[in-house]
Structures are given as C-alpha cells and as structure tokens.
Amino acid sequence: MAKIALITGATAGIGEACAKLFASAKYNLILTGRRLDRLEKLAASLNKKYDTEVAVCAFDVRDREQVISNFENLPAKWKKVDVLINNAGLSQGLDPIQSGNVDDWDTMIDTNVKGFLYVSKVVSNWMIANGRGHIVNIGSIAGKEVYPNGNVYCATKHAVDALNQGLRIDLVQHGIKVTAIHPGAVETEFSEVRFKGDKERAKKVYVGFEPLVANDVAETIMFVVSRPKHVNINDLVIMPTAQATATNIVRK
C-alpha cells in the first residue's frame, strides 16, 4: 500500500518541489494551497507522470474552519497520512517595527503560526490514531537569528522552531517523528511575495551568489523521512555554501 504525504503550500516553491519528489517515490499525495488552478494542474501532471493518486484541497490555512472542514471531509483512506510537510508560510514587507504594516503582521502570524497549528492539530490526531507518522516543519534561518527589519517574520519562524520542539515532546510517546528544516536563501517566489510582486527587487536578493533552489530543500526532506524507524532528525539548518548567517553572504 502506497504511503501518503500531505503537503501544505504546494502551489509553488518548496511545496511543489516536494510534491514532485514524493510522487516520484510512489507516495500518494494530499496537496493544499490557495490557488485551485495550480493545484489541479500539478495533480494532473503527477498523476499522468507517476500514476500517483492526488487529493486536492484548496483553502487558506489562516481559516481554521476551512482547514478543519477540508480535512475532515476527506475519505477515510486519506486520513492514513504518513508524512505531513508543514510548508505553507510567507513573509510580508521588510520594515522596522515602528513603521511596519499591521496587516502584514497579521498575515504572517496567521499563516506561519496559527495556520501551522490548525493543520498540525488535525493531522497529529490522525497520526496518533494510526500509530505512526512524521511531521516535517519548514522553518527558516530567520527562526535561528533575527536580522534587520525582519522582526515579525523572524518572530513567527522562531515560533515554528519552538513549536517543532513542543510537538516532538508531545508526540514522542506515540512514536511520531517530528523534524524542522531551516533553509537559508532559497530562490523561489518567497522574495516576490515579500515585496508584493516587485520582481526586480526580489531578483536582487539572489544576485552575486548561488542560492538554494526548492529541490535542494525537497531532497533534504526526503532524506529525513527516509531514515530508519529508530532515527529522527530533530532539527536541520540548510544554507547555500556562500551564506554563513542570515545576513552574511559572499557575493561576487
């Protein structure tokens, strides 16, 4: 029987790369995201290429009722989730607190922290009932350091780091693995979303060095979940070779 991976934020970037990699490894998939057209296109592509079964759930993780209703309305066979990848997350703006946009703060907190919790609560209970599972939480180097103007985004990713540790403690008695992956600079839509569609400003973030790409992180996640039953990788930071800290990047 094929294993099942549930991936949030699967419409682009790391989530989409995970969907492709896990489909190639013969997982069946539950893919979530806000953009139904992208989810359906990805699902059709993976089904055709890998003969993978894909369930699509289009909703915003910030909406607790949508999270609960979409997941609980899935057929029973889809609740046998082996791997949850908590990938949905974003950054909005890059401003000091005194001039920050409060709506941006709400979006980051509601997505990166509350959405993470809503999904984790439902799926962890499935895993407890099933007697197995592995939760992989996508954090950030921003969850290990604080950098100029990163204030609220860094706070949300520090929260992910803390919640990852809390989940590990709470679920260890049930034999459920919990891992956090903290990437440095990854060239995806992240900066474009942060700068609200300003593609030129987003491109400048990655100029002069070779950043990670989404598949680098996806391959790391696959490595983590493929460890033997008795092995859990609690916490892993992955950076481009040219990046030593959040702000220390060698550019040529």
Rank of each mutant, 00 (worst) to 15 (best):
Q66T: 12
Q92E: 12
A10F: 00
A155I: 02
N137S: 10
R34V: 09
G143K: 08
D235C: 08
N73G: 14
A25S: 12
L29F: 10
N232H: 02
D110Q: 15
V83R: 01
K121F: 07
R194V: 12
P240Q: 10
R64K: 15
E40R: 09
I176L: 09
A129V: 10
I233N: 02
I233F: 12
I221D: 03
V224R: 00
I128A: 04
G131L: 08
C154T: 06
I68C: 05
V61R: 01
L74N: 03
D95C: 05
K157F: 03
A246H: 11
T247M: 14
E187P: 00
L21D: 08
I128D: 04
A44L: 11
G184P: 03
V152W: 02
T107F: 00
A185H: 04
V160Q: 11
E187G: 02
E192S: 14
A12I: 01
T241H: 14
P211E: 05
E53K: 14
S140P: 06
I7M: 04
V56L: 11
L212P: 02
R168Y: 09
D103N: 14
W105E: 10
T179A: 02
K144A: 07
I141C: 08
A76N: 13
T245M: 10
N248I: 13
N164K: 04
L39Y: 00
G184N: 03
V102C: 02
V83C: 06
A218H: 01
E53D: 14
G197D: 12
V123S: 01
V250K: 15
D103P: 01
T179D: 01
M222N: 07
A17L: 00
D82I: 11
T241K: 15
L171S: 09
D37Q: 12
K26T: 12
E187V: 04
V136C: 07
G100Q: 10
S24I: 05
F209Q: 04
L29W: 07
N164V: 01
N87K: 06
E219D: 13
D37R: 04
S91Q: 08
I7S: 01
S191V: 03
A25P: 00
G143Q: 08
A180I: 12
P183K: 09
I169C: 11
I176C: 06
V250S: 15
Y27V: 06
A19G: 10
S69Q: 14
D110W: 01
F223N: 10
V54G: 01
N164L: 02
G89P: 00
